[in-house]
């Protein structure tokens, strides 16, 4: 299949994609190593509560998932030229509403399932403690993810970056890092 419309800068060349992403990936990896340090320093807390350990990958990934929903929508709207950053604008408000509702649902289910698994693991935790840890951490993460998703797209838009290469990685990573930090802070406060 031949390329019908070669543009001045070929944004689909291997070199362009690698060069656009590599510096950002490096910076984000360094930040993630900070998250790794938190995880390693609290190793005994997590290993002492295996039920808490079950929450870790979800806490790392879900904030990024939620932020990516809004970031990817905004990114596509930017490409299509229909973007708006006004939170009163129905399209954006709908995204925010949906994400908070999704977070409430997902982190409630997580707490209940982890409660059941805690019994299977022989290290049960109180349902109230798990619900508090999961929902407080999860809803805080969702709020941060929304702010980051909108902010990062706005900056890409102003600076002329391709949001596909910028927004989703920034949102996902900051949420990954904060996921471990927020979960650790809330757990220590509750337990």
């Amino acid at each position: 299949m031949s390329d019908p419309s070669p543009t001045r800068v070929d944004t689909w060349s291997i070199e362009h994609i690698v060069r656009t992403m590599a510096p950002l990936l490096l910076v984000l990896s360094v930040l993630e190593l900070g998250s790794g340090l938190v995880l390693e320093s609290l190793q005994s807390t997590y290993l002492g509560n295996p039920t808490l350990l079950v929450l870790v990958p979800v806490m790392i990934g879900m904030g990024g998932n939620l932020g990516a929903i809004i970031a990817a929508r905004l990114s596509t709207q930017l490409h299509l030229g229909t973007i708006s950053f006004d939170p009163r604008e129905p399209q954006l408000r709908a995204g925010i509403l949906a994400i908070m509702a999704l977070a409430g649902t997902v982190f409630t289910v997580l707490a209940v399932v982890a409660f059941g698994l805690g019994h299977l693991l022989g290290a049960p935790m109180a349902l109230s403690a798990l619900l508090t840890i999961s929902l407080v951490s999860g809803l805080s993460l969702a709020a941060i993810a929304i702010v980051l998703g909108i902010g990062a797209t706005w900056i890409s838009y102003r600076r002329g970056y391709d949001p596909d290469d910028v927004t989703v990685p920034v949102v996902t990573n900051v949420c990954d890092i904060l996921g471990v930090v927020i979960l650790s802070t809330v757990s220590i406060a509750v337990l």
Binding site: L25, L28, L33, S35, G36, L39, G61, D176
Partner: peptide, 10 residues
């Protein structure tokens, strides 16, 4: 671990 898993996501 977090950096490794996050790189997949990125």
């Amino acid at each position: 671990l977090p950096a490794f898993l996050a790189t997949r996501g990125n």
